[in-house]
């Protein structure tokens, strides 16, 4: 670990200014990922701006019936909030399937969204990584591929985004509020994270210094049932091989609305818009669910070491939708 300075910010504008001015500065929230990466010298900030007191740690009702989650709300508080558990079960389930109790106590909502990939080559400074050092090459492409992407990857990067929470938020049409050098802006969660394209060093669309201040959830549709299904290599404390956040509304045996997002498949939480479009208006049957999954996964380009993720993603999507259908009956 390199030596670094530590400052606690009192004002959002001052923190933003510092980050814009000092290229070696970084925001520190829960630190559950950043501090690990500093120990590994994957990131080497010279100045940490502690932002834990800058943003809200409260969950508030919005006038439209939605919720506003402060960026500093710990993952454990968000998962346990009765309103979240009742109205957005998929979000609570996703949070509780991630990390450990201790980590969830420390990790924040904003930090969870901005955590880095757990690609083993990204986390090891002795192996080449385009995300760490642009142009250095991708060691994962021909390396250990089990946790790598099957959708939306590029020749420069096949890493996946590790968050469970973000997958649920993608399915819920959440909006992220961001403070920055200019005025505050709102970004749809599905547009916050990027695909790697030619510049995988950029995880998100955030500009230098921009700070997530909160996440807004639109009002829940009363008939929408939702759940999070995470498939991984052991029962606890492992990242998703495949995860599915799904919400389903069925009227008279037909799908009226479906929201589906996938985790473990791409550089970002993957909103399965093709599957959703296929489902809308279709009969709520196993065959429709299979068709929808197949339509979404027709774009999959797996590597030899993760080809199993395609049937796994299909089966998990179908099983999750069938469970929601069962629940609706």
């Amino acid at each position: 670990m390199r030596p670094f300075r530590y400052e606690r910010a009192d004002e959002v504008s001052a923190a933003v200014t510092t980050l814009v001015r000092d290229p070696e500065a970084a925001y520190l929230a829960g630190g559950t990922n950043l501090v690990d990466l500093m120990r590994l010298e994957v990131v080497t900030p010279e100045l940490l701006i502690d932002i834990r007191r800058l943003t809200s740690d409260r969950i508030e009702e919005l006038p439209d019936g939605g919720l506003r989650i402060g960026a500093a709300v710990p993952n454990s508080d968000l998962a346990a909030d009765p309103r979240v558990r009742r109205r957005y079960p998929v979000l609570s389930q996703a949070l509780l399937s991630g990390a450990s109790g201790q980590l969830r106590n420390l990790a924040t909502t904003g930090g969870n969204l901005l955590q880095r990939t757990r690609c083993p080559y990204f986390q090891d400074i002795t192996t080449a990584c385009n995300k760490r050092t642009p142009g250095a090459g991708c060691s994962a492409m021909e390396g250990y591929q089990r946790d790598m992407a099957i959708l939306g990857a590029s020749p420069t990067c096949v890493a996946t985004h590790p968050s469970d929470m973000a997958v649920a938020l993608a399915a819920l049409d959440a909006v992220v509020t961001v403070a920055g050098p200019a005025s505050e802006r709102r970004i749809r969660l599905t547009e916050l994270h990027r695909l790697p394209e030619a510049d995988p060093e950029r995880d998100t669309v955030l500009a230098r210094g921009e700070l997530i201040t909160g996440v807004e959830l639109p009002p829940p549709h009363s008939a929408l049932r939702s759940r999070y299904r995470k498939v991984r290599d052991r029962a606890s404390y492992a990242f998703a091989l495949i995860s599915v956040a799904a919400a389903l509304e069925v009227t008279d045996g037909a799908v009226r609305d479906a929201r589906i997002a996938l985790g473990g498949v791409a550089h970002k939480p993957w909103r399965a818009t093709t599957a959703e479009a296929t489902l809308r208006g279709a009969p709520a049957t196993r065959e429709s669910f299979l068709d929808a999954a197949a339509a979404e996964l027709s774009a999959a380009r797996p590597l030899p070491g993760n080809a199993f993720k395609v049937p796994l993603a299909r089966n998990t999507m179908v099983a999750t939708l069938l469970e929601l259908l069962e629940e609706a009956r």
Partner: peptide
């Protein structure tokens, strides 16, 4: 890793040992 000769999953997040669950 056959190219580099190191254990890729060299930490407790990646080398999975049975958890309580």
């Amino acid at each position: 890793d056959p190219r580099f000769g190191h254990v890729v999953n060299h930490d407790f997040a990646q080398y999975h040992i049975a958890s309580h669950a």
